[in-house]
Each structure stands twice: as structure tokens, then as C-alpha cells.
Amino acid sequence: MRVGRAAVAVIAALLFLGSAGGCTTSPPVPGLIRMMTWNVNTIHFAPQDWAPVVAARAPDVVALQEICSGDAEELRAILERDHGIGYRLVPGPVPTSVDGGRVFASVDCDRRKIGTGAYGQALLTSLEVVPGSTAVVSLPVVGGLDDDEPRAYLATTLRTQDGRDIRVVTTHLSTRGAVRGDQIAVVAEAARASATAVVLGDLNTSPAETSLLAPLLRDFEDVDRAGNRSTSRNQVDGRESEPQGERIDYLFTRGLATVGEPETYPVTSSDHRPLVADLR
């Protein structure tokens, strides 16, 4: 699926340095699996904005949150056409009919406003997707959801070139404190069933909220051991301001080792920074 991946990454960074918010390229290392998680804020940004950021790092797995299924497919096509990077797409729109059949509001992916639509998570990957392994599962919500949005996790099993299976679970959790604990417990349980697994996404939870993160901290390893890499950011008139926001996006592993240090960097195409890690 990918030819000359390191060379593609270098070229992409040189051509699209400005679009990626000034980030420099870190080419993939042979034998490692590069994973990226990124909340792309589909309401305010578009696939052509995200493509240079993804191409500059050329990850093997890209977990995307706040994205429409159509935008994920368009992003996949742009990466292949303009950057020479081939990905398989695993869409994961969040079900809007939950809680006994009640239909909740989501993002209308056609009109970019609140409504119903194929909105939620997605995965792009150069690895093989194990047939029949993909599931989208609704998560607990707060008292009829109120003004929150429906939540779910997307899970699939990916097979590496040497035949090893990795269960990948990505999600975008509620902003509500109490229900986030319940949601994290469900997500952790879904990933815990596999000896080799990754949980990644926008958890809307700070590292200080250890009681909420407990199910993941107990059974998984946080790639950002120091816990000091911010993934959200403040904006003033469209420009990034200091301080750099807080850390609410995570990448947890089970049965995999983190090689080197994870990376975050400022971008101009979302209100979140990507989080990238190399795994063995």
C-alpha cells in the first residue's frame, strides 16, 4: 500500500510546512508502527487542511475524531492522489439512535451544523484490517444527553506485516465528568480483551483526573510518560496563543513498547494538536 514512505514524508513536509503549522518531518522508522490520534474539528476545517499534517508524519495508523465519514474518505483520496500515501479507511460514525430508540442531535455532515449525520470517528491505516473485526459501540450518556452529543467507540483489529494482530480502539468522550468515568471503563474493557491493544483519542480528561483514567492507567501504558505534552490549544483571532492549552488527547498501549518520545506540535487546521508515537 505504501512505496517509499520515508521519502514521501520528507517531500510532504518540505512542500506543506506552512500548512502543518511549522512542524518538521520525522520519517517513520522501519520495523516500528507509527500511530497518530487527532481531533480534526470537521465543522471548521476540511480534508485539504488536514492532509499535509498527516502526510508530514506518514503514520501507519491515523485515528481521527470529530470527522464526517465523507470527509474521511476525501482525506484518504487526497493523501493517495497528492502525497502518494495509500490508506484503508475504517469509518466509525456515532449512532444517533440510542437510549431506547431516542434520536439525538449530532453534526449534519452535509450542512455543517447541528442535526443528524454520519459523524464521529474514523481510522486510516496502511495495515491490513482483519475482516469482521470492526465494531462501533455506543457509550453511556448523561440523563438523556441534554446538550451533550452522542458518544461511541470505534474498534477494529489490524494485522501487521509479520502477522501480529493489534486491537485498536478510538473514541471521543463526553465533557461531563461523572459519565466520562463510565465511558472510560467501557472503552478499557473493550481493549483489555486483547493481549496487544491501543486505546487512543480525545478523552476530554486531564492527567490530574486520575480517578476517571484509572481503568486505563491500571492496565495500559501511557505513551506520554511525563504527561507534559499539551494537545489542546487556545486561539486568538485564528492564531495560537500561550499558554498551550492542556492535555486531553491520549494514546495508551498494551503489549507494545513505545520507542522514543511521543510528539505533539502546533497546527493551523484544528483546535487540537496531533499526538504521534512510534511503537514496537
Rank of each mutant, 00 (worst) to 15 (best):
P30K: 07
L15A: 15
G18N: 12
A155Q: 13
A277I: 11
W50Y: 01
G18F: 15
V62G: 00
P215A: 13
T196K: 12
S106H: 09
R176W: 12
E263Y: 06
A63H: 02
A208R: 11
P91C: 07
S106A: 15
T156D: 04
E66Y: 03
T264M: 09
P95Y: 01
Y265G: 13
P27K: 11
P131G: 10
I184R: 01
T175W: 12
G86V: 14
H172L: 06
E74V: 08
A208I: 08
V53G: 09
L75Y: 05
R81N: 08
M36C: 15
Q48G: 11
P215Y: 05
H44L: 15
P28Q: 11
D202Q: 09
V8E: 11
A72K: 00
S211I: 04
E246N: 06
D165I: 03
D271A: 00
Y153I: 03
G84F: 02
Q244C: 04
L212H: 08
V129R: 13
I67G: 02
R57I: 07
I85V: 10
R180C: 13
R192F: 15
D219F: 07
D162W: 06
H44V: 13
R111Y: 14
E221L: 09
Y153L: 10
V94P: 01
D71H: 07
V98F: 06
L17Y: 15
G201W: 00
T175Q: 08
V103K: 15
A118V: 03
P243R: 01
T196N: 03
P274H: 07
R229Q: 10
D71P: 00
V98W: 04
S19G: 12
D49S: 05
R34D: 05
R167C: 08
E149A: 07
L275I: 10
T231H: 03
R57E: 13
A190D: 00
L256V: 04
P262L: 05
V3P: 04
V29W: 02
S126R: 15
L124D: 04
V136W: 07
D165E: 12
V137T: 14
T24S: 14
